[in-house]
Design a protein around this nucleic acid. Structure first.
Length: 221
DNA sequence: ATAATGATTCGCT
DNA sequence: GCGAATCATTATG
């Protein structure tokens, strides 16, 4: 097992506890009513996957909140219930994974009580373990900060596809979220990305959150 | 049954 | 900065 070059792990050095197994989040950890707060709270949590016999661990560094039923950018706007969005009405802790542009799998965590279709989109992670697997799945020529900086990129890197849409993150054997007691000094906020269709108001709401200064986030500034 | 489109990414100019 | 890739989902007839 080779190590990532130092410049790609420098930001994690302040969190030695990341190298120790943490506490898996249980169902009640996803039950808060406020999805915007939840979106901030998920920063610093760790995604663990066991896909095709390969383990990955990655630190959540960027998220976006999508709130039902009023948010026009949310797939479940006005509680729209379809074959795709029905996953969003499952209890908090459910994985909502859908195909975007026919190419990219986007990973969301459903939050709140069953019937409340709130989602937190995971937009960027920093690799902790298994970066060789991520590199291989991404088929990128060289390691750089683009490896997992983007919702489609990270899902591909850690092996998440629609095959896992609807699974419960608190009980599933192959994918879960851990708390390793990481909190960030400074969290930045700004408008969400790629939702021009949602109208001026919802386009401007600052519901995208990221670890300020982190080199692994998807969009600059 | 048909048509439009997207919570993106990549490569090229 | 621009446009193509690529297909499940959704609305509409």
């Amino acid at each position: 097992m080779t190590r990532l070059p130092d410049r790609y792990t420098a930001h994690l050095r302040q969190f030695p506890q990341l190298m120790v197994t943490g506490q898996r989040l249980s169902a009640n950890a996803f039950a808060h009513e406020d999805v915007v707060q939840h979106s901030r709270d998920l920063l610093g949590k760790v995604i663990v996957t066991h896909i095709d016999g390969q383990r990955t661990e990655s630190l959540i560094v960027e998220t976006e909140a999508y709130r039902a039923p009023d948010d026009r950018a949310c797939h479940a706007h006005l509680n729209r219930y379809t074959q795709r969005t029905k996953t969003m009405f499952e209890p908090g802790g459910t994985a909502y994974i859908y195909l975007c542009y026919g190419i990219h799998h986007l990973f969301n965590i459903i939050t709140g009580p069953a019937g409340m279709a709130h989602a937190v989109l995971i937009r960027a992670v920093a690799p902790i373990a298994g970066w060789e697997v991520m590199q291989s799945r991404r088929a990128r020529p060289r390691v750089d900060f683009q490896l997992t900086a983007g919702p489609g990129k990270l899902s591909q890197a850690i092996g998440l596809t629609r095959a896992l849409n609807g699974v419960a993150l608190d009980t599933h054997p192959d994918v879960w979220i851990e708390d390793r007691s990481v909190t960030f000094d400074e969290i930045a906020a700004g408008p969400r990305i790629g939702i021009d269709y949602a109208g001026d108001y919802w386009k401007a709401v600052p519901w995208r959150f990221w670890w300020a200064g982190c080199p692994w986030v998807s969009v600059k500034r």
